[in-house]
Simulated assay, not measured.
Amino acid sequence: MSLKQGALDVRENAHVPYSNFKVGAAIRDAEGRVHLGCNVENVAYPEGTCAEAGAIAAMCAAGGNRQITEVYVVADSPTPVTPCGGCRQKLAEFSDAEVKVTMANLEGTELVLTVGELLPGVFSQSHMDRA
């Protein structure tokens, strides 16, 4: 399955009764498996789940390798939508800085950045070495 098609397909399953803003995400792990996620809203907005977080949760639930090697995120927006700050941190937890993140809209416009470009100066486990 291509990451693009997976993200487009899963986007249709988003639960967005409040914003109507559907997002789909697909990640590939180091074993080549594809994991999908869509956003799930809650009336208490901060309690919702982003598509990227859902894909990471699916990867963890599947067991096996937890190293992300590629990401694709798609939404119906004028320009490609970037992951929120929290999802950037989540992606960084499971990726190397060089991992490619493709962000797209439904018209086919794509923006490709690395995890390191999306989150320079990432907070990492090494910051806690003295704890």
Results as ranks from 00 to 15, higher is better:
Ala92Trp: 04
Ala14Tyr: 04
Asn20Cys: 11
Met59Val: 01
Asn65Ala: 15
Val99His: 03
Thr82Lys: 13
Ala57Cys: 07
Ala51Met: 06
Val74Tyr: 09
Glu41Ser: 06
Gly32Ser: 07
His127Gln: 11
Thr82Ile: 14
Thr102Phe: 05
Ala62Thr: 06
Thr102Tyr: 03
Ser126Ile: 07
Cys60Met: 13
Leu8Val: 11
Asn42Gln: 13
Glu31Pro: 03
Pro78Asn: 12
Glu98Tyr: 09
Ser126Val: 08
Gly48Asp: 05
Ser2Asn: 10
Val16Ala: 11
Asn13Ser: 15
Val73Arg: 01
Ser2Phe: 07
Gly32Pro: 00
Pro120Trp: 12
Leu106Arg: 02
Ser77Ile: 08
Ala55Asn: 00
Leu106Gln: 05
Ala30Ile: 11
Pro46Tyr: 12
Gln125His: 13
Tyr18Cys: 01
Val10Lys: 02
Arg66Gln: 14
Ile27Pro: 01
Val34Pro: 01
Thr102Pro: 00
Val74Lys: 05
Gly108Arg: 04
Ser124Arg: 09
Leu36Gln: 00
Thr114Asp: 05
Glu107His: 10
Gly86Asp: 12
Gly48Arg: 02
Val115His: 01
Tyr18Met: 05
Gly54Phe: 04
Ala26Val: 04
Gly121Trp: 10
Gly121Ile: 09
Arg11Met: 15
Ala53Asn: 04
Cys60Asn: 11
Gly85Glu: 11
Ala58Lys: 03
Leu113Gln: 10
Pro46Ser: 10
Cys87Arg: 03
Pro46Ile: 12
Val23Glu: 02
Asn39Glu: 07
His15Ser: 13
Ala26Gly: 06
Asp129Cys: 09
Met103Trp: 06
Val43Asn: 03
Cys50Asp: 14
Phe123Cys: 06
Val71Gly: 03
His15Asp: 12
Lys90Arg: 13
Leu8Phe: 13
Val23Arg: 02
Val34Phe: 02
Val34Gln: 04
Asp129Trp: 11
Glu110Thr: 14
Val115Phe: 01
Leu3Asn: 02
Leu8Thr: 07
Val81Phe: 13
Asn105Glu: 07
Gln125Lys: 15
Lys4Leu: 05
Ala75Glu: 01
Ala57Phe: 10
Glu70Asp: 10
Asp96Gly: 14
Cys84Ile: 10
Asp9Phe: 03
Met128Gly: 08
Gly24Met: 07
Cys84Pro: 07
Asp129Glu: 13
Cys50Phe: 15
Gly37Phe: 04
Gln89Cys: 11
Pro120Gly: 10
Val16Glu: 05
Lys22Ser: 06
Val99Ile: 04
Asn13Leu: 15
Ile68Glu: 00
Val112Phe: 09
Cys38Ala: 12
Arg66Ser: 11
Gly54Cys: 07
Ser126Trp: 09
Arg66Glu: 14
Met128Tyr: 15
Ala7Ser: 08
Arg66Phe: 10
Arg130Ile: 12
Gly37Cys: 02
Pro83Asp: 09
Arg11Phe: 09
Ala44Phe: 14
Glu12Ala: 15
Met128Asp: 13
Ala104Asn: 05
Lys22Ala: 09
Ala92Arg: 03
Gly6Leu: 03
Val10Thr: 08
Ser124Pro: 03
Cys60Glu: 14
Ala131Asn: 13
Val10Gly: 00
Val81Pro: 05
Tyr45Lys: 08
Gln5Leu: 14
